[in-house]
Simulated assay, not measured.
Amino acid sequence: MLTYNIPNGKLNRGLSVVISYRILCPNATENEMNMARLIGWCMEMFQTSFLLIDDIMDQSITRRRQTCWYRLVSQ
């Protein structure tokens, strides 16, 4: 699910977490930045879960120019 859905998005939410953290904490250590990146990926997974639920509820056929993930696993 992760490799099918997340890479095709714009990744705006995850990147905004990292950029915001860098702005708010300009002297952050590499370990702290890695934690911000981890939280960014968690945000992307969280958003993707909402998109999957939306696709199922709407019975969507495609998202981001590919077959919806739930349709692949239900075949």
Rank of each mutant, 00 (worst) to 15 (best):
M45S: 10
I56E: 12
L2Q: 06
M57N: 06
G14S: 03
R13V: 05
N12E: 13
N31R: 07
V17C: 13
M57F: 13
C25W: 01
W41V: 12
T29R: 00
M43W: 04
Y70T: 02
D55T: 14
E30A: 14
T48R: 14
Q75A: 05
M43Q: 10
Q59F: 15
L24D: 01
S60H: 15
E30I: 13
A36Q: 00
N27W: 04
W69L: 05
A36W: 00
Q66F: 03
W69M: 02
R22F: 07
W69V: 00
S20P: 00
M45P: 00
L11F: 00
Y21E: 05
N27L: 09
M45H: 05
C42S: 10
S60Y: 12
L15G: 07
R71G: 05
Y21R: 04
R13T: 06
T3C: 07
C25L: 01
E30Q: 12
T3V: 04
C42N: 11
T29S: 12
T48F: 10
M35F: 10
L24C: 04
N27Y: 08
Y21P: 04
M57Q: 15
C25V: 06
Y70H: 03
R71A: 05
R37H: 09
R37Q: 10
I53Y: 13
N12L: 14
F50K: 13
E30G: 08
E32K: 05
V17W: 08
R65S: 14
T3G: 06
I53C: 11
L72P: 00
S16Y: 12
M43R: 07
S20Y: 02
E44W: 03
V17G: 02
C68R: 00
I23S: 09
Q75K: 13
K10Y: 05
M1V: 03
G14A: 01
E30S: 11
S60E: 15
Q66N: 07
L38F: 10
D55W: 12
Q66C: 06
G40R: 01
L15P: 01
M43S: 07
V73T: 08
V73N: 04
S60N: 15
N5M: 00
R13N: 08
R71K: 12
E30L: 13
Q47F: 13
S49E: 10
W41K: 13
R37T: 08
I61M: 11
W69D: 02
R63L: 14
G14V: 00
